[in-house]
Amino acid sequence: MTEETPAHVSRRNFIKGVVAAGAVASTSAYLFRTTTLHGQPSAAGAVERLMTLNVNGQDRRVDVLPQQTLAMTLRYSLGLTGTKIGCDRAECGACTVLIDDVPHYSCSVLAQRVRGKKVVTIEGLADAATGKLHAVQQGVVESQGFQCAFCMPGFVMATVGYLKTNPNPTRQELAHGISGNLCRCQDYDKILTALARGAELMRG
């Protein structure tokens, strides 16, 4: 009835996931269900609910309630479930995505506020054409970084964002740069090693 995570992420499946993000994980009936039951038609002067969201390089048309967060929109309207919700309230960073290259907690950003901006999620990091992992992802794979990995997408996105401002950080600087993210497996030492390796790979 549902599709599980593939044991091996093939290039084809990966591209499918990026391009048609959501269709792999979700069913159409769920994706396009309307939310009129809330009884919240657009009031005069209110923002239009139907909006275009640029996610992972694709323009996506999506129906968004005024109070809907970016995290809920990504996960529940667009099927991009790689973005995790760990706390609902800007405490843990599991939902971190890039908005115009800057890391944000997507649980604390209204989807309506990112019109005209570019959103990148964990699904959009690897090369869409080749499936080649981003350097930070590769650093994680080489170091067996993280444990349960529920925090991993957020940490990886925070690192990618931070490295845009400081491509050659010390270990301590990198720790500060991603200190808005929480890992409850508490594997901080190995996480830092993995992400620092990613930074090294990025520098080439």
Partner: peptide
């Protein structure tokens, strides 16, 4: 490299809340 790691780092790994079913 453990068999779950690439799925985890690309966001493909599915935890309980990541599943969707018709009429859910």
């Amino acid at each position: 490299v453990t068999p779950d790691l690439v799925a985890k780092v690309t966001g493909q790994a599915k935890y309980a809340e990541d599943f969707r079913v018709d009429g859910m």
